[in-house]
Design a protein around this nucleic acid. Sequence first.
DNA 1: GCTCGTTTCAAACGGACGTTTGAATGATAC
DNA 2: GTATCATTCAAACGTCCGTTTGAAACGAGC
Lengths: 230, 230
Amino acid sequence: MRAIDAKQSPDTRERILDAAEALFVEHGFEATSMRLITGRAGVNLAAINYHFGSKEALIQDVFRRRLTWLNEARLSALERFEKEAGGAPLKPHQIVEAFFGVSLRMAADTAHGGHTFMRLLGRTYTEPSAFVRQFLADEYAAVVPRFKQALFRALPDVPPEEILWRFHFMLGAMSYAIAGTDALQLVSGLELDEKDPEALSRRLMPFLLGGLRAPLAGPAAKTRNPRKAA
Amino acid sequence: MRAIDAKQSPDTRERILDAAEALFVEHGFEATSMRLITGRAGVNLAAINYHFGSKEALIQDVFRRRLTWLNEARLSALERFEKEAGGAPLKPHQIVEAFFGVSLRMAADTAHGGHTFMRLLGRTYTEPSAFVRQFLADEYAAVVPRFKQALFRALPDVPPEEILWRFHFMLGAMSYAIAGTDALQLVSGLELDEKDPEALSRRLMPFLLGGLRAPLAGPAAKTRNPRKAA
DNA sequence: GCTCGTTTCAAACGGACGTTTGAATGATAC
DNA sequence: GTATCATTCAAACGTCCGTTTGAAACGAGC
């Protein structure tokens, strides 16, 4: 009856994945109904449960389809730099390039859906749904420690905890820059130039490096007068 | 029958707003049912429609309750610096302090719900729902142009477009740092120290300033080999 | 041409959703 | 005590949700 683990019927499966990916970006997971997905994909409502098993499983497959490739690309970029360095610590800009540069290049690919997926991924970092969070944690388990270690070696004078915070901030700036394009208009009236998908990368990479290498704050916090919220 | 515009019944209204705020952060707008909200608030299901009119109106009131105050605090902080400067351009760190410092101080207020609200606000920047986006745009219309202009004056050597991008990146780093605490654990195993709510501010502000003042990229993009996504 | 496993399809399932209703309750003014 | 208002309450409304079902259509192997 069912063929949940099978690889058959490439057409229907791919059509569903494409439609779901686009609709998840547009409306979020909860607000995207299976009837909306199957309607856009031009397939029968029951096709999702037949091919994927459930809506949750579909969501996971939407991520798996591209995230595995993305993380492998990040790792191989890092390893290429490490081979070039021959045992010496990498430069910070190389590590940032390997992780964020690869991501931004995928986000610049509007032809094959990479752009849509990266918007979805950025949105999802703030998604509270438990099973999505767990899934992302598993997918990142292999790649994050490698980048952490590379950063520790590249910035021996910066406390490791500070590096982790800054990695977190960089991830946020990128995710938001990709996922929150509406907010960009809100703030500035700017719009992403579709003709030049590399523009974001050219703007963002210097910002990330500037933040990563910012001087450390002194031991005394420089906040002024803590104030209560209303 | 209805008293949608009235200010009566402070207790029920506030209980609903508090419960909704917390649950929206935890589950998102769509996944938070009115039965869940009223159950947590200890009020009758019909109370939301009676006091607010609809679920959408409740969502807007959850934001309005704190966002108006936040934006006024941002503006007054900016104006205080401008008065001190007496017509001279502000320092970048003052502008960043006025906008992001005020926000982070609200996010550090765990006692009066400011922390919960700032997490919700951060989440919402990537929320695609149309009416929420429009609402946020209206609320920010008065404050954003003021900060834009202050930044243009503070950084006369940086192209205005570049400044807008970097403001966008800073907003992303902060939103994500506040809203995506789960992702922080994912990346690093770090956890926010509840005992020291100022920690985030002390870490984030130098990062934001480092990114804002980062050297401009040369006219020639330094990307290497554009690659297609699978 | 028949068989068998895979895929598609229309229809229905129980349940949860946001909203509405009309009566009960409570408090205030006369 | 009675009238008047705002508020609370249990119950029900119609709709949409994710999922399941059983039959129809399809396609490859013999």
